[in-house]
Structure formats: C-alpha cells, structure tokens
C-alpha cells in the first residue's frame, strides 16, 4: 500500500495517471449527466465504438491515433444525430451498424500495421499508466471546451433534454443543440478513451452521473457530484489495481459498477421502508 504513495511522490507516470483520471472525470461528469437524463447511452456507445475506425486509420498512416479518434467521433456523432432527427424509426439499426462498421474498419487497419496486439488492447481497454504530458494537455483542452460550451448553453441544453417540444415552442433551435450535444459526447468519449479504453467508456460516462442523479434535483448539481464520483472511482481504481498489477481501466469500471449497485440498493431500500 505504501508503495503506491512512494511511487506517486517520485514517479511522473503515476502522477500523470492520477491527473488524467481527474481530467477525465470532469468531462464524464458534465457530459455524462446529459447522456443519463436523455437516456442516450446506446447512442453514446455507438459513437465510442466507431472511434476505433478513426484510430486505426490514423495509426496505419503513422499519425496520432487520438486525432483520428476525435475526427471519427465527431463524424459518427453527426451521422447518428442526423439519422435520429430525420429517420427516427431506423435509429436503432443505424446506430448498431455505425458501431460495428467503425470497429471493423479499425481492426482491419490496425491488423495491417506494426505492433497489432499491444496497441489494439490499449485502444480497447485504455492504459492510464502511459499518459504523456502531451496527452494531459490535450485532455485539459477538451475539458476547457466542454466547460465553456456547457456554461454558455446550460439553459438550452437542459431545456432540450427536459422537454424538446416545449423548447421548440419557445423558439430554441433544437436540432442544432441536439447535434451539438452529440458532438460534446464525441469529445468526451475521446477524453475518456486513454483512461478506460473505448469499450469501457460508456460505463464511466453513465455510472457516476446515474449515481449522482439519485441524490440531487438539478442538472448543475448532478454534474458536480458526478465529477466528484468520477475522481473517487478513477483514483481508487488506480490505487487498488497498482500493487496486484491489475488492469487499471477494468478496476475503475468494477468500482464504479459496484458503487452504482450499492447506491441503487440503498436508495430503494430507504424509499420502501
């Protein structure tokens, strides 16, 4: 147990990991709250998984995979958003298709690149222990974009999440804000991939926010509480996984999942008492 804190005080990689977890938690608190109240976890999952296509192509071309991830995520968000707004009845199938096709493209490109297995694994499941200073800087930038966007358009984002028909009547451009919300999810997905990988992203995006929702009655408080939960889960996961050498991403998700079930159980127990 002491080894974790000794290493933390002397080694940059562990400091970066902890800092990376905190930066990811801010994004997951802000965006995750909108994913949960809009009940669009499946959509966020589609965006997250299709990102592998962009990462694979960028990796094959020798570019930064995270630049590829960001482009793919924004593209997937736009396609899913337009389909949702124009052809509502096919939304489900289309998201499934984008989800799988994105991953297939990624796997094909990565298989034709050098170092297939190790990199595929870190894209899929994340590797919080190898976050570079440069990546921390990119994460900080994505956080700042998210915070500014949510602060400026808080009213509109809450309104379209709450009652889209009433927001339309009040003259809000709901289609535009819906697309922007999906793009915000895309940015957050990329932010979280380094920490838990693209397969587990959806859990970190929804679980802290879902727990927070059980205790508050405003989206603002939900965001704050979800971010705090995110910091607790990523730090605890990192700490617990360090000495037994467990995969940190998976440990973080297990702790989040456990916290969610305990919280839901406690909530329903007290409600029916």
């Amino acid at each position: 147990m002491l080894e974790f804190f000794n290493t933390l005080s002397s080694q940059a990689f562990l400091q970066n990991a902890l800092l990376g977890g905190i930066l990811a938690s801010i994004g997951c608190g802000l965006t995750g709250s909108f994913v949960v109240v809009n009940r669009i976890g499946y959509m966020a999952g589609g965006i997250a998984h299709s990102v592998l296509g962009g990462m694979g192509i960028a990796y094959y071309l020798g570019l930064n995979p995270f630049a590829g991830a960001l482009i793919a995520a924004l593209l997937a968000a736009t396609i899913i958003g337009v389909i949702k707004l124009k052809w509502q009845h096919q939304e489900d199938t289309t998201i499934g298709a984008i989800w799988a096709v994105g991953m297939a493209i990624g796997i094909i490109f990565i298989s034709k690149s050098y170092g297939y297995n190790a990199n595929l694994m870190s894209f899929l499941f994340g590797n919080i222990l190898i976050i570079s200073d440069e990546q921390l800087f990119i994460m900080l930038l994505l956080d700042i974009i998210t915070i500014i966007f949510v602060a400026v358009f808080y009213k509109q984002l809450v309104a379209i999440s709450f009652d889209i028909e009433f927001a339309t009547v009040r003259g809000i451009n709901v289609n535009l804000f819906y697309l922007l919300l999906l793009c915000l999810i895309a940015i957050t997905v990329v932010l979280l991939i380094q920490v838990v990988g693209l397969i587990l992203v959806i859990a970190l995006l929804t679980l802290p926010a879902a727990i927070a929702k059980q205790y508050v009655h405003s989206i603002g408080m939900m965001m704050l509480l979800a971010s705090v939960f995110g910091v607790i889960f990523t730090s605890t996961g990192l700490f617990v996984s360090y000495e037994p050498d467990l995969p940190a991403g998976a440990t973080i998700i297990l702790i989040s999942g456990l916290a969610y079930f305990v919280s839901s159980f406690v909530k329903s127990f007290f409600r029916f008492k």
């Binding site: 009652d163 889209i164 508050v216 009655h217 405003s218």
Partner: peptide, 11 residues
C-alpha cells in the same frame, strides 16, 4: 401531458 420523464432532476 407532461412530455418529460417525471424522474428528471429538476426543481
């Protein structure tokens, strides 16, 4: 009808 989820966290 209220067009929203009644469990939405809002005052």
């Amino acid at each position: 009808y209220a067009n929203f989820n009644s469990d939405f966290p809002i005052s």
